[in-house]
Computed example of a mutant assay.
Amino acid sequence: MSTAQVPAPRLRLLGRFTLEYGAAEADVCTGAQRLLAYLGLRGHGTRTVVAGTLWPDVTEDRAHGSLRTALWRLHRGREPLVRSDGDALSLATAVTVDARALADSALRVVEAPAPGADLWPEPSADLTQHLLFAGDLLPGWDDDWILFERERLRQLRLHALDALAHHLITHGRHALALDAALESVRLEPLRESAHRAVVAVHLAENNVLEAIRHYRTFRALLHEELGLAPSPDFAAMLPACVLTRD
């Protein structure tokens, strides 16, 4: 009789921490969660660095003890989730990580040729949905290393959403382009490049009134919050005769 194949483990760090095997969610203790999250985001690390990062407020011996306990718990019952190569630790190759997949999707968009270039294909539905609906990285976790990784991923996603909006405009996908631009605005309301993407969508659809209204709303917000004005490049996107009436 053949043995049923165990589903590959999936580590989810966006929205909340979960470790899944197919439809089943594994029960993972706090220390093991922290170890998996670290390796899922950083890729690898030496035992000393991992222990010192995850348990910074205890002695080195206790930190290494906590690391050994976390490794032991992760090795029970299933094939190991963490690889050990001498002093180096890394995730097993079978483990997929949603935060890594999001970063890969964002990098594909950011590193693509400029909008309009023949080398840039129409963005796939999967890539677009991935960037539009990703959750926050481990909300509620406030370790310094998590805060850094959360901001790094947020900035990468912001750049990708701005670029995605312009690529979608090129392919005439105006509704999705507007979704991408507005999601970037939601993530960072004072980010000019996001608002410029929104205006670019409206202009591509010949909705000049919508473009002007959005520009004026952003200009008022920027002045109220920071005492600044939009850049000349942003103003140049709109008819000069309209702006001179303000």
Results as ranks from 00 to 15, higher is better:
2 S>E: 10
10 R>I: 01
14 L>K: 11
19 L>I: 03
22 G>K: 02
25 E>M: 09
26 A>N: 06
26 A>V: 08
32 A>S: 12
34 R>V: 05
36 L>M: 10
36 L>P: 04
38 Y>M: 03
43 G>Q: 14
44 H>E: 03
47 R>G: 15
49 V>Q: 13
54 L>M: 12
54 L>S: 10
57 D>V: 08
59 T>P: 13
62 R>A: 08
68 R>G: 02
71 L>I: 06
75 H>K: 09
77 G>A: 06
79 E>R: 09
85 D>W: 15
87 D>Q: 14
87 D>F: 06
88 A>W: 15
91 L>Y: 03
93 T>V: 10
98 D>C: 11
98 D>H: 09
99 A>Q: 02
106 A>D: 04
107 L>W: 14
109 V>R: 04
114 A>H: 13
115 P>A: 00
115 P>V: 00
117 A>L: 02
117 A>S: 08
117 A>Q: 05
118 D>V: 14
123 P>Y: 00
124 S>D: 10
125 A>S: 07
127 L>H: 02
127 L>F: 05
129 Q>L: 15
129 Q>M: 15
134 A>L: 00
136 D>I: 00
139 P>S: 07
140 G>Y: 01
140 G>C: 03
141 W>Y: 15
141 W>Q: 15
141 W>T: 11
142 D>W: 03
142 D>V: 02
143 D>V: 02
144 D>M: 06
147 L>C: 08
149 E>A: 12
152 R>W: 01
153 L>K: 06
155 Q>T: 04
159 H>L: 14
162 D>Q: 15
173 R>K: 08
175 A>E: 09
184 S>L: 06
185 V>N: 01
187 L>F: 04
189 P>N: 13
189 P>H: 06
193 S>G: 03
198 V>M: 03
201 V>C: 08
201 V>P: 01
203 L>N: 09
210 E>Q: 06
218 F>H: 10
220 A>W: 08
221 L>F: 11
224 E>H: 04
224 E>K: 13
224 E>L: 14
226 L>C: 05
230 P>W: 15
232 P>A: 13
233 D>F: 05
236 A>R: 04
245 R>I: 14
246 D>F: 15
246 D>I: 13
